[in-house]
Write a protein that binds this DNA or RNA. Sequence first.
DNA 1: AAATATAATATGCGATATCATATAAAACAA
DNA 2: TTGTTTTATATGATATCGCATATTATATTT
Lengths: 157, 157
Amino acid sequence: MDADLNEIDTHEKESGFVDGYLLYLLASASHLASGQFHEEIRGAGVRVPEWRVLACLRDNDGQMVTQLARFALMEQSHLTKTIDQMTERGLVTRRSDEADRRRVRIFLSEKGRELAGQLVTQASAHEERLIRQLGMNDITQVKGFLSHMIETLENNE
Amino acid sequence: MDADLNEIDTHEKESGFVDGYLLYLLASASHLASGQFHEEIRGAGVRVPEWRVLACLRDNDGQMVTQLARFALMEQSHLTKTIDQMTERGLVTRRSDEADRRRVRIFLSEKGRELAGQLVTQASAHEERLIRQLGMNDITQVKGFLSHMIETLENNE
DNA sequence: AAATATAATATGCGATATCATATAAAACAA
DNA sequence: TTGTTTTATATGATATCGCATATTATATTT
């Protein structure tokens, strides 16, 4: 309690750049909001990159590594290592693509699918709480903007 | 070209969870958009955490470590190490707080302030391009939402 | 004042992330 | 075919990150 009595001089400078900078606002909002949920995730013994992989595979099983890395917002070689760990834990399996044997497709195991389901349920519940906490009854506009932004950026770089 | 002829089965599954999940949309939009600018940053020989520190200090010089870490979206011990590096490069200086000598306040050097200025200029230009690219003429609503979100989340955890 | 508790930063170490490149398969060119 | 280029994933070395805790300073209690 009384956390910031001595920090009067350092807060509240109004004319800053970052406060109005779109990329900072996005990063900051994402950081804070995801931070909340990531605690839950770790409480379930799952790392953030693993959660992302589980969620992406649940939506779309059998993705190839490169693609999955893109969706799970991580670099390819890191995903490879994450998959190594998840394979050891019995959450996913690798299967090489018959048509193109360079490709490796990743599938949820039974156990992985179950865990993914649980976590998605938790995520939905958390999202609901978050939106209520924000006092917004309609968030579709914001989601629309973000989706538009993602689509635009994915299609030209 | 013809990038995704063989990936028909893996794209475009409509009923996914993540596509509509607020935290994923935020993380993804932030990741893609910041990714663009971070290339510029690294082109200038600056690491992402360093850029965040520079920008935060430019808005508010002389912050103490804990605070600065919060604003720069990084963990305290990591910031300490980042500051070590930035000090060696002559971008910032440490000065211990006279009133409370546990505290260490971080200040931009002349060189650091100059670099921060340049980067902020680049950031503004990039933001302008980005918003134009998105075809939005008014983005204040979105920024308002994000600011509200940040404020809400900062004030209760 | 002495003892104890709390706070701010730094440090060591293990885990994670990233870069460059190796390996392997496929596509393309000669 | 053979050689060359491109694509997909894996690997190894290095840097970064984060946790737990050490260190130092202040606040609080006795």
